[in-house]
């Protein structure tokens, strides 16, 4: 029983860990995307500094606003120059001319309600226009929701498959000991007494499987993250240190539970004498 069960438990735990890490990263990436989907409120040219500050405060106090950042004309110009770098020469002579507006960059708490927020902000006195990448925002929302749903489903399916495989692996070996179990019952052993060593064995296998898969996953994760993030620079991946504790705890629980339940359940049939 031991080797086959150990391998099965390890593989299931490994997959479980992979899905967990995938979900964690998907969550983090979608949060990053959401936070990048800003609303930009551009302010009329002839609005005083004090008024700009007022507009900024009004926006900041809106219920759905997470952060807001005021960028004055001067700052906008400096930033623009920075972006242009050596090409900044094209801006020479334009100083003092009003071609860049002051603006407020806004990120929302709930981007599903971005439309309302945009409508409201548009009505604020002194706001010239509001830029909202509405279609992108809603697509991102839909995409991340689908990914979350998908990964939860995948984990559930994996759980069911894992229990099924474990049960059957252990059942085979328990079947070989079925007669032994029956004899124990005939002699007067309680279910609890008979089940105990099996459950302990299951827990041990679960623990060993956890250790093996955890080591592989933690080493593998670092390698994968470093190679993937050299290709995809857009997002930050969840660093191992940040997820090692929840990953370890859930994998250990999953493994021990799988072993204990698998072996505990699979001898049930033989106890009925």
């Amino acid at each position: 029983m031991t080797v086959a069960s150990f391998i099965t438990v390890s593989c299931c735990l490994f997959l479980f860990g992979v899905f967990l890490l995938f979900t964690l990263n998907m969550n983090s990436i979608s949060e990053q995307i959401e936070s990048q989907c800003e609303i930009i409120a551009r302010i009329d040219f002839d609005v005083s500094a004090q008024q700009q500050q007022d507009i900024y405060n009004t926006i900041l106090n809106l219920e759905n606003v997470k952060t807001a950042e005021l960028e004055t004309q001067e700052q906008a110009l400096t930033n623009f120059k920075k972006e242009l770098g050596d090409d900044a020469v094209v801006l020479e002579g334009l100083e003092g001319k009003r071609f860049l507006r002051s603006s407020v960059k806004i990120s929302l708490k709930d981007i599903r309600k971005s439309e309302e927020a945009v409508k409201y902000i548009q009505k604020i006195n002194g706001v010239a226009e509001v830029e909202n990448r509405q279609d992108i925002v809603s697509k991102v929302v839909k995409f991340t929701a689908a990914v979350k749903k998908g990964s939860v489903m995948a984990m559930l399916i994996l759980l069911i498959i894992a229990i099924f495989i474990i049960q059957n692996t252990i059942k085979l070996s328990v079947h070989a000991r079925g007669k032994e179990i029956q004899i124990m019952k005939f002699v007067g052993a309680t279910d609890h007494f008979i089940r105990m060593p099996f459950v302990i064995e299951g827990v041990m296998i679960g623990t060993l499987g956890f250790i093996a898969s955890f080591v592989i996953i933690t080493f593998g994760y670092n390698a994968v993250i470093s190679s993937v993030s050299s290709i995809i620079r857009l997002f930050d991946f969840v660093p191992l240190q940040a997820c090692i504790t929840p990953l370890g705890i859930s994998m250990a629980l999953f493994g021990v539970l799988m072993g204990a339940l698998g072996s505990g359940l699979s001898i049930k049939r033989h106890l009925k004498v």
Binding site: Q182, I183, K185, F186, V187, G188, A189, T190, D191
Partner: peptide, 15 residues
């Protein structure tokens, strides 16, 4: 099980 402990059972196939 407690009933069986008060009994001694012997089978044809020894068990």
């Amino acid at each position: 099980p407690y009933l069986r402990r008060a009994q001694g059972v012997v089978f044809q196939d020894f068990r």
